[in-house]
Design a protein around this nucleic acid. Structure first.
Lengths: 335, 335
DNA sequence: CTGTTAGCGCATTCAT
DNA sequence: ATGAATGCGCTAACAG
């Protein structure tokens, strides 16, 4: 009969006793500093630690050293592939810096976002990464008021003054418009979100400047796939579907594809589509989406660097520009 | 010039001093217990806390009370929509139980999974939820050896003995086969994973028992969308594509749809497809996928209950069975 | 009902 | 190079 009760975890004091050393020395060898330790002593300590299967208690360490080694990641909604992909890259980048990631989904609710931030702050996070949608309050400011650094990724609320890392929306939109024109479309419609805040608002503005005042149609719908699919079916039914379309997000593009299929409208033959996110999902739609791909991994890395090293200036500039990935939905062959 | 330095956070002692009470009383009111406090005193304490903008330090609390209020979630890969959706539901269920979620992606690497678990344990998590793929070691056992409860979701390694919450794969597969047969397909092929471990292995076995030894073809490929797309193009090119197919996962189904589109094979006219995951993504493909939907939210809730309340027995039984969601890819109209 | 006090496990300062 | 001793902020005995 094996013992069911877990052996009480060994502490630094246990190791010290076993190694015939003081707790201070053990601490020095566990952390490689801040003071030197004789090689022989170090060996004894290491051996004792191994024998006792010692695991440093990060909570005690956090209390004493006032850094938890944990950063909070607040997400508007991880089921949006764009946010989800960012989240993975951020978690990975934090791991590379030896940080653990506390993750929370706010489900597009400002209240829940606020709640999450408060709980993260209470948990003594070393920093906050906020991947939020439009409409939230400036939670980063709240964090910084308590001395915790924070960085926005992708979107920053109107009133925000904390650093943001975002992609170059203008270049992405212009590349997309140019590509569609090279296919012979002189009219290029744009599918925006329900309002003009945040990155999508900037993309819409970029589209306007790119197409000029030529009367190209501006479409709007919610970011959900279902909404875009519904809009597409409507448009086809009314014969009002343009022949070339740029969608503000991959979610919308996927919805458009689904709606077009359901309505019997062939993409790219009768509708050319380019999307502006470039999440991994976009490569495996039917047909595969041509996209202006945001450098999500680079954005994540940059955000973590800004957060941890406080390189406030030139945040956005340091991430590579969006690049056009040509696949099928624009009308090009291959892909 | 506003002060840039954050005011040192108020502590329980500060509140006690300000309220003219002892730290014990303050603790009692902050936690609503474990001992009663006179209403008048409680008011004074609350007022003092509010004035000082007091935030309990969860790290100190964790050290003292030996529970951190944090649980670790280790994911094989959050970019797999099935795991990603589970992760969100688990995070939400944990939040409802007042727990924070430490999230880590193992990227299908047993090493990284091991690493994550060790770091989570060092962070004194109150429990571990493991959404892993085939091939990992029994990390839950390691956690439980240190007294930390752990639950597997979706998949448990061969050697595992910890509780596992998974869906009813057999029922799902039988429903899918029956539905395809009702469309007149007497042969129903199955697309499995590269090997027969884990849930996909069970699904494949269920398919075999459902179709009998009638020579229906078993296909295999990696779980990635690209792999399934490539396989599909190959099969079409060689004229070896069956007319009815069940895919073990949504990822594969999406890849099949992409491959079929690229190869000019019409779904559902010349290929009927049903998938066995039923992630949110499956509703917005072209055409929309008919799926045997796993009750991901219920699984997440159940897993959290098992983890936190130790209801080890009858884990899987308590989750609702998979349900067939009929859309277009099987050949049905509407959807 | 409330105050006093002793640690939780660790990092670090002050002595050697 | 090492040891002893001091808290980090909080909870929970133990006294009133």
């Amino acid at each position: 009969m094996t013992t069911k009760r877990a052996a009480k975890a060994a502490t630094l004091t246990d190791v010290a006793r076993r190694a015939g050393a003081s707790t201070a020395v053990v601490s020095y060898v566990m952390n490689n500093g801040p003071r030197p330790v004789a090689a022989a002593t170090r060996e004894r300590v290491l051996a004792a630690a191994a024998e006792l299967n010692y695991r440093p208690n990060r909570v005690a360490r956090a209390l004493r050293s006032r850094t938890s080694g944990v950063v909070g990641l607040v997400l508007a909604d991880a089921s949006n592939p764009c946010f989800g992909a960012l989240a993975r890259h951020i978690e990975q980048a934090l791991g590379a810096r030896d940080k653990l990631t506390l993750t929370g989904n706010a489900a597009y609710s400002a209240d829940r976002q606020q709640h999450l931030v408060e709980r993260f702050l209470a948990a003594q996070v070393d920093g906050l990464v906020i991947v939020s949608a439009d409409g939230g309050t400036d939670v980063a400011a709240e964090a910084e008021a308590t001395g915790v650094p924070a960085v926005y990724v992708h979107n920053r609320p109107e009133s925000g003054r904390s650093p943001v890392v975002s992609a170059d929306n203008d270049a992405a939109v212009h590349a997309a418009v140019a590509h569609l024109r090279s296919h012979g479309h002189d009219r290029v419609a744009f599918l925006a979100g329900p309002h003009d805040a945040g990155p999508v608002g900037r993309r819409r503005a970029a589209w306007e400047s790119a197409v000029g005042r030529t009367g190209d149609t501006l479409l709007r719908c919610d970011y959900a796939r279902a909404a875009a699919a519904g809009l597409t079916r409507d448009l086809v039914a009314r014969g009002a579907m343009p022949s070339a379309l740029i969608t503000a997000t991959d979610e919308q593009a996927i919805g458009v594809l689904a709606g077009a299929w359901a309505a019997g409208l062939s993409v790219p033959d009768r509708l050319a589509v380019i999307s502006l996110d470039g999440t991994p999902d976009s490569a495996h739609t039917a047909p595969a989406l041509t996209v202006a791909e945001q450098p999500l991994r680079a954005m994540a890395r940059r955000a973590v660097d800004v957060l941890l090293d406080g390189a406030d200036g030139a945040a956005a500039e340091a991430v590579p520009p969006a690049s056009l990935i040509v696949r099928r939905s624009c009308g090009c062959e291959g892909g």
